[in-house]
């Protein structure tokens, strides 16, 4: 396959940046999208040009490190991570536009690499159960209904890639935040801090500059792990019942 790549290049966070165009040939349909970029980078390096910087690591679709806005969609045309996207999803001769995640809370570091530490700070605000190591009850002491455990697991599958934010016209982080709030609100272990958790995580989300949710559902449609927007509904419920009855935030 022969392709034309239009890639966002930006030297650093203060650089203005712009698109550069690269032709690539010898692309095989079995390559993953990132392997195609590896080939481009090898060619650029051999020519003495700075390779295109992009985040990636496990290449198994689970670490959440890879990103890329491909032809106007986070992680490209399929509902998967970019590392699991293969070139068989594209046509010979196609022009592919590649951009970084665009969101105020995710500043560009270089080229296609963005800073997603805002997500870490949302978790630090309350995305945990306050237990120390040791001194916990036996694992089978508290039964959890299978249906509840399954729902919690559905939410817990979030990989923190940020596609939901990138897909949202408001750059909202509601899907990400609600996935963690839901997981812990569903499980008995999360009950004690249920209210404060919802309040604190939402407050941090707002402080980071993520937008509001206007229920377009773009996040769910683009989430590579299929996290459902029912979680957002659950978080809204958690949040409102918390602010009605607590004096925390």
């Amino acid at each position: 396959m022969k392709l034309t790549l239009k890639i966002w290049r930006q030297k650093n966070s203060s650089d203005k940046g712009g698109f550069a165009t690269y032709p690539v040939d010898h692309v095989s349909k079995d390559m993953s999208f990132l392997e195609m970029l590896d080939v481009l980078n090898e060619e650029l390096t051999e020519k003495g040009e700075d390779p295109v910087h992009f985040d990636h690591d496990c290449r198994e679709g689970i670490c959440g490190m890879c990103s890329l806005y491909i032809n106007g969609k986070p992680h490209g045309p399929l509902q998967t991570t970019t590392c699991q996207l293969h070139m068989r999803s594209f046509n010979d001769g196609e022009t592919i536009t590649i951009e970084p995640w665009r969101a105020k809370a995710f500043p560009v570091v270089k080229d296609l690499v963005v800073d997603r530490e805002a997500f870490d700070r949302i978790i630090q605000a309350g995305g945990y159960v306050n237990v120390n190591t040791g001194g916990v009850p036996d694992a089978n002491e508290i039964p959890v209904a299978k249906t509840i455990a399954d729902l919690a697991m559905d939410a817990a599958q979030c990989i923190g890639c940020g596609a939901c934010v990138a897909a949202c016209k408001n750059a909202s982080a509601m899907l990400f935040t609600s996935a963690k709030v839901s997981q812990l609100a569903l499980l008995p272990q999360g009950q004690v801090e249920r209210k404060t958790r919802a309040e604190k995580m939402v407050a941090q989300m707002d402080a980071e500059g993520f937008g509001a949710c206007t229920n377009t559902g773009a996040c769910e449609a683009e989430c590579p792990k299929g996290i459902s927007i029912t979680n957002i509904a659950r978080m809204n419920r958690e949040y409102f019942s918390a602010v009605m009855s607590s004096d925390n935030v």
Binding site: Y128, V131, V136, P137, N140, M153, A156, Q183
Partner: peptide, 22 residues
């Protein structure tokens, strides 16, 4: 054996049987 207890207490959603046990 303590690891499993610890992880469950943290809210790790391990697979469960219909009776609610792991």
């Amino acid at each position: 054996v303590k690891i499993i207890d610890q992880c469950v207490a943290q809210g790790v959603p391990f697979a469960r049987e219909y009776g609610g046990l792991l």
